[in-house]
Design a protein around this nucleic acid. Structure first.
Lengths: 277, 277
DNA sequence: AGATTTTACGGGCGTCGTAACGATT
DNA sequence: AATCGTTACGACGCCCGTAAAATCT
């Protein structure tokens, strides 16, 4: 199994259209069509159900898509990590989303710097759910992120857990109460709080916390945040109210499972050693 | 990054000899030499320190070797899993080493068969430490195996924990005692028991339990075994003695981390539901 | 009729193999 | 002298691109 046909396959599977996929790959349609047929022949499996005006994945194709993404990520990561291993002054790259650190980034870095195995740290700021991709593709050595996330190929340790607060407009009727319950906020089935939080952000096309808070201030939405946020983002127009029955927010440090780096291990030590504090 | 040069690289890194690696790959030396140079150029990194009569990996090469193995395994696994996904009557392949099941294989299979999500099971018997390779390369859907093992790319749950017993010749002086301590048996630093067990087997080139017991009977060695063994392998010439201070043997069920198969999930349920019993 | 995938054909680039060279033990 | 990695060179094959055909909406 070669990697190039697999890249072609992923492109087609994403576009579900040979012409567009070919364009994205920078080749013409015919070679692409043949490459896919050859791949199907090699595997002895039909990957796409094609009619002239529609392309759909077969069950085998679905499986290959998820597996192929993993394999191709690993391939990219291999090259990138080898390159970085040749760096005479290797930096430790830590992926963090702005403000998604429970205020612990500085103490973690301070504790890390004191470790003899530590290295200079390069922060890689990233957005929603990018952490895991950066780790899997070899762009980052470690990441600081909130659960839940896809643990595939990663190891992780909990850094801290926080209670949640609801953020709502100061003018909102619920703001008059001192404390809220989960049902007041999510209005959905319980136990899906993490999904709820992600969906709120995704639905409004919000990419960072200040934007989200702006929408809250305008009364457009109510959301749940870790309790470390209010102290760092006081807003006159926003009321933060505890939600005692909401499950806690879990901040974790994650790293590629196969990592054998002592520098990464030291960072994990530094991050987890704050749990007691 | 293409997969073929990476396969070539792994071959050279394993053989540390271009000629032998080329032979193993079924090509001549020159193309291999050029492929490696090209790969080094692409990465901008030196992978081997070559003098005419010695080839050694650079640090970057070491990193690439471990990463490349993972990526190539994932690539193979992708093809194999896609093939198997096209099977209209898919079987669940369970990797087990003979006698390394704490006697739980039958109950697990029985419980599994009762699950509506279950499928016909095909047992894949394997040897020392092969389980993880079978999982990673897509040959097996799940494995039943003792800790410790390399968890990279795998998820696992504990099935059961067992106390350990020492197996020694009935004629051995220690056999007169009712109970032994760890120090009597390992004679090495403590806390390395799992390593000790593996090494005993590796050192004597033993591939299965009956062979190992034969050596024990002859008085050639003393080893630690899970306490489920004596009942299934009574031997007049062998004394089994409890070792209370030995850490327990942990039997686990493992599966590829990215698995979304309900059939695999059902097997895991069946295996872990025996914990209480 | 329009859009899309697939077959047909010709050209180029990559990779391979044989042969010769250089270097080290 | 022998062994091993590398360079040189000629050839084969795979993959690509353009053009045309087939098929479904």
């Amino acid at each position: 199994m070669e990697s190039r046909p697999l890249r072609y396959f992923v492109a087609v599977a994403q576009e579900l259209n040979f012409a567009r996929a070919a364009e994205r790959l920078g080749i013409a349609s015919p070679p692409l069509s043949r490459a896919i047929r050859k791949l199907e022949a090699e595997l002895g499996v039909t990957l796409f159900e094609r009619t002239t005006h529609s392309v759909a994945l077969t069950p085998a194709g679905e499986v290959l898509l998820t597996e192929a993404r993993i394999a191709l990520d690993a391939l990219d990561a291999a090259g990138r990590r080898a390159r970085r291993a040749a760096d005479p002054e290797p930096k430790l790259v830590l992926a963090v989303k702005a403000d998604a650190d429970a205020g612990l980034l500085d103490p973690i870095l301070a504790g890390y710097a004191a470790d003899p195995a530590s290295r200079p740290v390069s922060l890689r700021l990233c957005g929603w759910g990018e952490h895991t991709r950066l780790l899997r593709e070899g762009h980052a050595d470690a990441a600081l992120l909130y659960e839940p996330f896809d643990h595939t190929g990663l190891d992780a340790e909990t850094v801290t857990t926080e209670r949640r607060v609801a953020a709502l407009s100061a003018a909102h009727p619920l703001a008059r109460r001192d404390s809220l319950s989960l049902a007041d906020v999510t209005s959905g089935p319980p136990g899906e709080v993490d999904q709820f939080v992600d969906e709120v952000a995704a639905r409004h096309r919000v990419r960072d916390l200040p934007q989200l808070l702006k929408l809250v201030e305008l009364g457009d939405l109510v959301t749940l945040l870790p309790e470390s946020v209010p102290a760092r983002y006081p807003r006159p127009g926003i009321a933060y109210r505890p939600v005692p029955d909401a499950p806690p927010a879990v901040l974790a440090v994650a790293w590629p499972q196969q990592s054998r780096s002592t520098a990464t291990a030291a960072l994990v030590r530094a991050a987890t050693s704050l749990r007691g504090a």
